[in-house]
Design a binder for these strands. Structure first.
Lengths: 190, 190
DNA sequence: CGGGCCTTTGACTGGTTTCAACTTCTGTGG
DNA sequence: CCACAGAAGTTGAAACCAGTCAAAGGCCCG
């Protein structure tokens, strides 16, 4: 039933009938509640496709604080690709931020799927390239903007998403403390 | 003559005779002096392969300071992929940091090459995935380590490269000022 | 209605930047 | 081979952005 995935793949490449069958049988949807861990530190990361809901990736620093490094909403893939590629234990956690529907592919399954459906090579190349481009921009913002500007920039660009998640997650993702976020908001309101 | 590229591609996928010919004829090596701009702000980014030497990507912030966001050494691809994909003007500059040999592919050429040599789809997927993984790690370090720790971490991991480039470029890449780098080094020596 | 999580507030601290001046290095031409 | 100019690196003082800590207030959900 992963119709969201099928539709997404078709935005990039065309599929034969047999490809569609393969995708349908190999990619099964998993329904997951809110705040459930899909990956925990020390395990090997599979690749996740978000059909519905949203995920976040984070690690826990030496002070025990969760540092969010990435969000993934509908139609995004998410994985710790270093762990995924090398099949080594990950430093990261991946967790649902809301009720979600997710496709989970571990590396061997993923690899075989690419052998059986060769057009997926191009699909994933384009998806990776797009994700990489987003990271390049992100690092630019981190280096270019102050933390306050980063907050304003983010809320202007993704107003609906900024509403959808708790503030402390947003603060963590933007690289500062919830207390500082409060201070920024106070200034804006007055 | 792009033997470096051929060798690199073959680390990931196998090539037919005709693929090799195509690669040889379409990918020509360009010799470039030190500190030459290969991309300037406002132009569309092609994709660069570093056969020899090294490149850096940077942008100029509102204060007129160059902010380095990325380095690329031998066997790395470098581009502003947002500009590359959308064919829109880039915000970035790409410049040689030493005498270099570089392969330059604009998007239409790149696209055609992938049509003519289908195994490259897999090659570039893997290259993108690896680059993306590196960025994920990088953001983790930015969020996890203080600027001083970032410097120590970098010099421990890439001692030879830290020697090879001027300190002010390293400071810029790590996200702080040359003055502060001086202070860190002073502490270390004593 | 109550408990726990999220958010706010304020005082204090410190890592890092800014600015300006000085020193050292490097490469190029006479 | 030396001189010199510009680039790169160092120093120190003052200012500030943002983090830390502790405590109080608000709000959601059982």
């Amino acid at each position: 039933m992963p119709d969201a995935l099928l539709a997404h793949v078709r935005r990039y490449v065309s599929l034969r009938e047999e490809d569609i069958t393969l995708l349908r049988t190999r990619c099964t949807l998993r329904h997951v509640g809110k705040k459930q861990n899909l990956l925990t530190e020390g395990n090997v990361s599979p690749n996740f496709f978000v059909a519905k809901g949203g995920l976040r990736m984070f690690f826990i620093n030496e002070k025990g604080v969760e540092q969010t490094t990435q969000f993934a909403l509908e139609n995004w893939w998410l994985a710790d690709y270093h762990s995924f590629e090398t099949q080594q234990p990950s430093d990261f956690y991946i967790q649902t931020i809301e009720l979600s529907e997710v496709i989970v592919l571990d590396e061997p399954t993923h690899r075989q799927l690419l052998v059986d459906v060769p057009s997926l090579e191009r699909y994933f190349r384009l998806v990776q390239q797009r994700a990489y481009a987003a990271y390049q921009l992100r690092v630019k913002y981190i280096y270019d903007l102050s933390k306050e500007e980063r907050y304003r920039h983010f809320t202007e660009r993704f107003p609906e998403f900024a509403q959808r998640i708790p503030q402390y997650l947003l603060a963590s993702y933007l690289g500062f403390t919830p207390e500082y976020l409060s201070e920024i908001r106070r200034k804006r309101i007055s």
